[in-house]
Design a protein around this nucleic acid. Structure first.
Lengths: 325, 325
DNA sequence: TTGAAAGCGCTAACAG
DNA sequence: CTGTTAGCGCTTTCAA
């Protein structure tokens, strides 16, 4: 049914080999023939069959990506940035979700490998149990961890410099005169939670005050309650992410505690709602575009055969100062 | 390098045809042979080359999807739901972004067609100019419009029943005693804005009060300002989506207008932040799971050859009553 | 610079 | 129920 490269070659009066070379932009084709082939392709409305090309050339120009959830706005932005980067390079994105289930994640990785993706980008869903899937994939194709990393997996990683982010937060609060701080974070069940906790501890030094739950609004609310029960509030509440901070903010507001007058509050991530909150949230912006750009760059280096490119990159984020601190 | 179906067949002592049939689960293979083939495949750690299978069978078990943005939480949820549906059926999702540019959208569609996706799901980015891309695609594979629809394109569509949603909002506000209402919506540059406006107009009847801008928080803020300048506020402000509603809410709060005591405010979509707002937003929940399920069902019917399946479905949403109204 | 020919790994006719 | 065989449409040697 469809027009094949044979039709194009016939119309241009050359062999399929020449047509193939002309169409794929290889050098070593006389300019005149190249023009003839391209003209023939246009006239016939030729649509190359990339499946056939993939079978023969063993490259699909497709990148696989596995994320825990797409609906998480932070991951969504990362996916979008990666897709945009890839599209500029004429590549496509096969997207899969793990739903935070390592078993599902493993199946998804296998499915992507079966589909012969050229490389894999993964936001691992589990700090330990995602290792197997990564190792399987890494044995065949370049693999990159994004945002989160798996303990003991010696592969590339690109993400934000969580520690640097917390340093900035702490410095900012200190400059605004805050003497006593509390960190409301998440149990270190993933590498980001760990790094943020570590960063906070290093930034404030000894005697730090830490409350750990999970990355949810509900935990933020409960943590705020706990702090209120203590009696005197600290000068600043450093939250492990924006969702927690929004919970804290909500609870404080409903208890008539004024932010930033009575207490300063900060978040981390700069999710879209951070700017909409009342008061608008001071937070650390994840440089997603940069993370995506760096991720694709690292992968390209690997695909180009640079074995030395098995490098990890932590991108320094910016502090976004708004009303809450 | 890799293990092929020939290796599996040889090890199982059957022909490649039998091996292929056994592996793809076709009937018409003696149980004993089937077991032998599956055992051989497992022993050899056989990984089928789906690229080769696609080339031969002319089906890739891949669905293409083009959305204006992934970072929009509403679209992200839709993408996630679709991916989950597809994964249950062993299919994969090739995801592309149009960035609201019809030219980009057209290129993305062509790229997906080149990759021989079995079907296309698209949230069109432009009410008119997305038509060309859809028509091109529809000439080759089943195509489905999601959420938004293109004027004059006679293809399937699945989305929410916007009019029904607005009826529910208006009825709820009326039951809460609101007599005077204002609709703060978006200029009908897309089909959803149009349908919501139409729905509102039909629900309130003549003499309706309508302010049109775009689906942004900024427009919500400005609209609230305009309403405040008028003097007396209406009893209820019906917003065209949650983002507008959040803008309205923010502006009212900062002007010391109390919601819901002084005025009722509603949204549409139930984006994640709707529940986090102060006060939490009463809104219409988009039934994204159902939309995704129906979308995949319609596509499957088309892929199964049911020509009658060129149907559109509007799914009735639910009202989520929270604090704001 | 070009062309002929050999597959990539698989599925689908077709014949048994 | 099984095997033989012929491609799917393309890229890539290899030789000219």
């Amino acid at each position: 049914m469809g027009v094949t490269i044979h039709d194009v070659a016939a119309r241009a009066g050359v062999s399929v080999a020449t047509a193939s070379r002309a169409l794929s932009g290889q050098r070593g084709v006389r300019a005149e023939n190249r023009a003839k082939v391209l003209a023939a392709a246009r006239e016939l409305d030729y649509e190359p069959n990339v499946v056939a090309a993939s079978l023969r050339s063993r490259t699909t120009h497709t990148i696989g990506m596995v994320v825990p959830r797409i609906a998480n706005p932070f991951f969504a932005t990362l996916v979008e940035s990666i897709e945009t980067q890839l599209h500029d390079g004429q590549r496509s994105l096969l997207l899969a979700t793990s739903h935070y289930d390592p078993e599902v994640e493993q199946r998804q990785v296998r499915a992507l490998l079966d589909r012969r993706v050229d490389a894999l980008i993964m936001i691992p869903c589990h700090r330990e149990r995602s290792g197997a899937a990564l190792t399987t994939a890494a044995a065949r194709i370049p693999v990159l961890q994004l945002d989160l990393r798996v303990d003991g997996f010696a592969g590339s990683w690109v993400g934000v410099d969580n520690e640097a982010g917390l340093w900035q937060v702490v410095r900012h609060l200190t400059e605004r005169g805050a003497r006593s701080l509390v960190f409301v974070g998440a149990e270190p069940t993933d590498s980001a939670a760990q790094a943020r906790l570590d960063g906070y501890r290093r930034a404030v030094g000894d005697g730090e005050d830490v409350l750990l739950g999970d990355f949810s609004k509900e935990w933020g609310q409960r943590a705020a309650e706990l702090l209120l029960q203590r009696g005197a509030l600290p000068d600043g509440i450093v939250c492990g992410n924006d969702t927690i901070a929004l919970g804290v903010l909500g609870e404080l507001t409903s208890r008539r505690v004024r932010v930033p007058e009575d207490v300063l509050v900060t978040g981390f991530d700069d999710i879209p709602y951070a700017a909409l909150a009342q008061p608008a949230l001071t937070t650390v912006r994840q440089p997603q575009q940069q993370i995506a750009a760096e991720a694709v760059r690292v992968l390209d280096a690997r695909l180009a055969g640079e074995e030395t490119a098995l490098r990890s990159t932590a991108i320094t984020p910016d502090l976004v100062v708004r009303a809450s601190a």
